[in-house]
């Protein structure tokens, strides 16, 4: 169960993207791809970056399970997107322990009431 989030000036373009079902990576003039919040290219530090949507495939780099005081759990993952950048989020449609390091996952979006759309992952075979 994801939480709610609202935009600020720095995330307006990003959340316009998630509303369309896109995770916007950042591409530099050399063609390197960086994470959505990069202000400088992760590879060459170039500052003139343009938005490009991720294709949606990725591989789990690490995982954890958050336990809430109400007894519910939420699987957490760091995913290496097929384009290279990493994205930290949660996993939906999977039991804790079902998806481990090296597993293939797909990007999807949760749209909580009163919130911007939140990028999350689901098992690739689900």
């Amino acid at each position: 169960m994801v939480g709610t989030v609202s935009r600020d000036a720095a995330t307006a373009e990003f959340f316009d993207g998630t509303a369309r079902g896109e995770l916007l990576l950042r591409r530099c003039p050399e063609g390197h791809l960086s994470t959505p919040y990069a202000e400088a290219c992760e590879t060459c530090a170039a500052a003139d970056l343009t938005a490009v949507p991720a294709a949606g495939g990725g591989t789990v780099v690490s995982h954890a399970v958050s336990h809430k005081r109400d007894g519910t759990t939420l699987p957490l993952v760091i995913v290496e997107l097929d384009e290279g950048p990493w994205w930290w989020s949660c996993l939906v449609g999977a039991e804790p322990g079902q998806v481990t390091t090296g597993a293939r996952v797909r990007l999807t979006f949760e749209r909580p009431e009163g919130s911007e759309a939140v990028p999350v992952f689901r098992p690739a075979d689900a």
Binding site: V2, G3, T4, V5, S6, R7, D8, A10, T11, F14, Y37, A64, S66, L74, L76, W88, S89, C90, P112, S115, E116, V118, P119, V120
Partner: peptide, 18 residues
């Protein structure tokens, strides 16, 4: 839950323990 920190928190990664 606002902005970049907010999207991380909304994704369930709201604290350094995670």
């Amino acid at each position: 839950a606002v902005g970049w920190r907010g999207v991380l928190g909304a994704s369930g990664i709201a604290d350094t323990t995670s």
